[in-house]
Design a binder for these strands. Structure first.
Lengths: 226, 226
DNA sequence: TGTACATCAGTGAACGCGCGTTCACTGATGTAC
DNA sequence: TGTACATCAGTGAACGCGCGTTCACTGATGTAC
């Protein structure tokens, strides 16, 4: 599918849309998503404000496109890491590197919801791609089954509530691990990127390392807690 | 300290400042902190916009006050829970209840930083109060020492980098547990409150329960991972 | 190859809105004698 | 208790700003014969 023969005008449109996004990202990286302004982007491009409405119907449509790109970028990063033999621990560090490279991009998708903006359904599909890579990695890792009544109960629950895995064949224990990995990594990153670690005194790198070792089962114990 | 004899005017000022904050919270609960508007608050109070400048020098000063209140509210909640015999697990649930009660209040302090706003130093002092309650609780809980090279290394690191504990006498293993508890709980809450669990299919309550059991060491294993 | 027409990118003016904040002023409240 | 004065809460107008978005229009680019 897609355009068979691209006309010059079509090519130009694609190009300008990309340039708009480029400036949008620069703006987001500077002041965050809430500061994203159509007029400001136009000014930076040396063009009048209304001109951009030829390329994006509204500010919301532009934001939606940026959100999708962010999800895709993260999924691509994880896929590349996995493709080159990276294990769960490597994926964790890939996520962190991706987040630190552009904190506002991270916040755009995992931070406080942008007020008044409602994400369309297909963004959740894209966001699930990253999870899929993660589940693959956990399926390869040697893991002990969940222990404790709450852990066993939740694993049973996951058996029948695995919509988010989108058909991934992983057993409940792996789903649980993947989910836990996800929330734990986000816990660290959301606090770190929001600046809550500055002034606390410890080294975020070392803390992340220790947490990842524990949740990836690479800390020598071989019995990571789920 | 404080006013020895409060004049009627002083009492009135205190009262109006409180009313302003009340309306500010209502506004935040509705549309988030970035939508907080001095003029909108004034309108709701049936008063002109500039009138509020008698009570708060600027919008930023008002936000600062709200942030401090939020930190204090959370610390109070935790203190109350601990005072009535609540263990680590109870504290986790208390935090979650506090967060769910007003998600935007949670995001105000733990979400994406408000662009252009710089928190004054004393907010970090207040934010450390909650951590202190947590460390107390962990010190009472039976816990295995950290395992794995990364865990041991980080524990050693904490020995010399414990500014954030503000003089709390807890040993490094407890500090590590407290920090880990903190980031893990925030990982779940930040994703849950931002709506990333909706549509995933599983029950957030059960997941939280399972995670807390694992990190509190109440899942029967008695060897929670650090 | 040249002309007539359709397409469409970009412009400038405008709409209506809300924001934080300042300023000179009015009028009510409290204070001092 | 009554009067003169100081304090200060609140007003309305104004400043300067930026926002998303619409609209009628110009002028360049591409298309069809």
């Amino acid at each position: 599918m897609g355009a068979k023969t691209e006309t010059p005008r079509e090519r130009y449109r694609v190009q300008v849309r990309a340039e708009i996004k480029k400036h949008a990202w620069q703006q987001i990286a500077t002041a965050g998503a809430s500061a994203l302004s159509v007029n400001a982007i136009a000014k930076r491009m040396g063009v009048s404000g209304p001109a951009l409405y030829r390329y994006y119907a509204s500010r919301d449509e532009l934001i939606t496109e940026l959100i999708k790109d962010a999800y895709r970028s993260l999924a691509d990063t994880l896929r590349a890491t996995a493709a080159s033999g990276g294990d769960v621990s490597a994926l964790a560090h890939a996520i962190r590197r991706w987040a630190l490279a552009d904190p506002h991009r991270y916040f755009l998708i995992y931070g406080t919801p942008v007020p008044g903006y409602e994400a369309p359904d297909d963004t959740t599909v894209i966001s699930a791609e990253a999870m899929s890579v993660l589940l693959d990695a956990f399926q390869k890792a040697p893991l002990s089954p969940p222990s404790g009544t709450a852990g066993i109960r939740f694993a049973a629950h996951l058996q029948n509530h695995r919509d988010w895995a989108r058909g991934h064949p992983a057993p409940p224990a792996v789903l649980h691990r993947g989910l836990s990995f996800w929330t734990r990594v986000h816990g660290i990153l959301s606090l770190e990127l929001a600046g809550h670690f500055t002034g606390m005194g410890f080294d975020p790198d070392q803390y992340f390392e220790a947490e990842v070792a524990a949740l990836a089962g690479t800390d020598g114990t071989n019995t990571p807690s789920v």
